[in-house]
Design a protein around this nucleic acid. Sequence first.
DNA 1: GCCCCCAAGGTTATAATATAACTTTAATAG
DNA 2: CTATTAAAGTTATATTATAACCTTGGGGGC
Lengths: 142, 142
Amino acid sequence: MPTPCQACESTGSATKTLSARGIRLTELRRDVLQQLHHAKHPIGAYQLFDMLNSKGKASAPPAVYRVLDFLVEQGLAHKLRSISAYTACCMGPHSHQAAFLICRNCSDVEEIKGPSLSALAKGGFQVEDLMLEATGLCGACQ
Amino acid sequence: MPTPCQACESTGSATKTLSARGIRLTELRRDVLQQLHHAKHPIGAYQLFDMLNSKGKASAPPAVYRVLDFLVEQGLAHKLRSISAYTACCMGPHSHQAAFLICRNCSDVEEIKGPSLSALAKGGFQVEDLMLEATGLCGACQ
DNA sequence: GCCCCCAAGGTTATAATATAACTTTAATAG
DNA sequence: CTATTAAAGTTATATTATAACCTTGGGGGC
C-alpha cells in the first residue's frame, strides 16, 4: 500500500483545526503549508515565492507574506528570525512554546519544546510571544 | 560634584577590556557604543547611521554595520532580532547568556540573564549562540 | 437563484535592512 | 621610516518586508 504523505496529512488535519475555528485553509495557504512541510529545512519568503510562482501559484511577495503571517498566527508555522526563514510547526495545532536548534553547518533545524512562559514571568513582565533560537553545531556535525 | 556619565564610563571600561584583548576601541566604535548607551531604547542600524552621519561621524551604512557586528562579537552590544535593533550590553564585558523582555507598548527593553547553555545542550547540540527574546507587556504597561 | 458582504488574494510601488566588493586611510610593529 | 594590516570609506546592490489600493470569489440572507 502507498505510503501516506505526511505533509498532505498535516494539511488535512490543519484544515480540520482551522474550520473548527471558523477559518478557511484556502488553496494558497494549503500550498504554502505543503511546501513548508515538504522542505527539509526552513525556507525564506522569497524562495517560497519563487517556488510557488514558477507553478503559477503565487502572484507577488505580499501574497506569500500574508499567508506566512497567517500560518504563524494560527500556530501552523514558525518564523526563525536568526535566519529569516519559515518552517512548518511539527508539533500539532495546540499552542506551545517552541524553541529551535539551528545547525550552522548542515542547516538542520530541530524544533524542541521551549521553556514555560511562567519561568520568564518574574518581575511582572507578561510574555505574549517568545522566541528562542540557538545556533551551533548539531550532534552529527560536531 | 558633577554626575559621572554612565555611558562614557562604560566606554572607558570597554577600552580597558578590549585593549586587554589586544583590540582597539577606535573613535567610531566608541561613538557607536556611546550612542547605544545614551539611548533609552534599542536603536536600528539606519537610525544610528543618521545620528552619526549628521555629526559627520559615519560615512555609510556598511561602516555602521561593521561596528555593530564588532561590538556584538566583543560582547559589548546585543542585536535584538525581534525588532531589528541594537542595544548596549548592560552586564559588563564578561561573557553571559542574555535574554530580553521587550514591551510592545512602551518599547522598553529589559536585559535579563538567560538560561544556561547546558540546559539546552541535551541531545548533543552544541550551542554557540543563543537568542531569547520575549515580547509582551512590561509591568508598568499592563 | 441573486445580490451583498467581506475575507482573501492580486498588483504596483517602495520601504527597511543588510552586505559585496573594492579603495583609501592610518595605527602599529619592526 | 616604511611595511604591514586592521579599520574605515565608497559605491552599488542584494535581501527582506510592507503600504496602499484594486479585484475576485465564496457563503449567507432573501
